[in-house]
Nucleic acid binder design. Structure first.
Lengths: 196, 196
DNA sequence: TCATTATGACTGACCGGTCAGTCATAATGA
DNA sequence: TCATTATGACTGACCGGTCAGTCATAATGA
């Protein structure tokens, strides 16, 4: 069924155009017309593939959430603290490799608030909860093997996730700060901060 | 001159109302009318004290920036790593103590992008640069006293600032995560992550 | 003292521009 | 031919910002 595939391909092209526009002007400053122009189509065509402007943002977020989940589920084997190092580096490098998607996070963060419908798919809280649980799991394993200093608990998982997201934030606000160059330092500090 | 004082008091009252409204609905979702209602005045009155909707956001940011700068300049004495601990805790506790102001940061972060006039006072990049320089200064002092493990450099300052801001971000996105309860853990991880 | 006049803070109706979403029509291609 | 897809002119709700007019209070002066 070439029709259906074609439709998905086109939808994806529009979505990517939207992400570029949102990254450049922010969601609040982006017009449907801008997205259409970026995708070389007419404004009305956008509505053949997406119901509303909001849905474009949701779809962009879903793409990000899917990639996040993929990174988290791809932990490999080895000692827990090595896997933690790998996890932190992968997340940072993935963010740095997709700057436009990362920029859209700025809008997703704020949109959580104004959202009224509870069933919103823009659930950043859920994404971070998943991050923290994954890191906490690794920490518990490391603790069981005696690799951690005493007193390390689940709160440290929040701080590790925070170190990543906080560097992302600084980079988004000030592109002069090179996020990719921080990957090793973040991983190192997170691990040394809990190691026995 | 009671007139002038009265004017400033009233301006401040409107600004605080604006911060509450922005925190609740986000800047993009806040109407001037909402701010006026929150302040128990008419819409037109808002314009007697602020030139535009944007200026309300700028003024809110300036208040935040001023408080930030105050915290950073109040480092006290003692061993550098102790001062670092104190700095991290102060920043986190200050953020946690002013949740409405913190929430407005969500909008300030995104507004950096859509901003066209370069002379914008919403310079979050500048604020973070100041944070990083202050932390880097403490790290250099600690290094000179031999308190750091080898290889610690200015990038570690970015990660420390990141740990704070990243926890703030998780809290803003998911109020179930208690920021105040993380203050000690953040401070501890940041210091243990660089200590010799 | 108290009527008259001046002030300026405040109000809210109004205007003009913007933009999300619609729909009649055209183009496409099977 | 005719079903599917694309177009872009159009609509109307919305909202930032304005401004003519009001009114409480202060100043004046008889």
């Amino acid at each position: 069924m070439p029709k259906r595939i074609d439709r998905l391909v086109r939808r994806e092209a529009i979505l990517e155009a939207a992400v570029r526009v949102f990254a450049r002007k922010g969601f609040a400053g982006s017009r449907i017309e801008d997205v259409a122009t970026e995708a070389n189509i007419a404004k009305g065509t956008v509505y053949l593939y997406f119901d509303s402007r909001e849905e474009l943002l949701s779809a962009a977020f879903e793409g990000y959430a899917a990639r996040s989940a993929a990174v988290l589920s791809d932990l490999g084997a080895g000692p827990p603290l090595e896997r933690l190092t790998w996890l932190v580096r992968s997340v940072v490098e993935t963010l740095a490799a997709h700057p436009d998607h990362a920029r859209v996070l700025l809008d997703v963060w704020s949109s959580a608030r104004s959202r009224t419908d509870a069933a919103s798919p823009l659930d950043m809280a859920q994404v971070y909860r998943h991050y923290r649980e994954t890191v906490a799991g690794l920490l518990r394993q490391a603790g069981a093997e005696g690799d951690l200093r005493p007193g390390v608990d689940d709160r440290h998982a929040a701080v590790i996730v925070g170190a990543i997201e906080g560097c992302l934030l600084q980079w988004l606000v000030d592109p002069a700060l090179p996020l990719a160059g921080l990957a090793d330092t973040i991983a190192e500090m997170c691990v040394e901060g809990v190691r026995a």
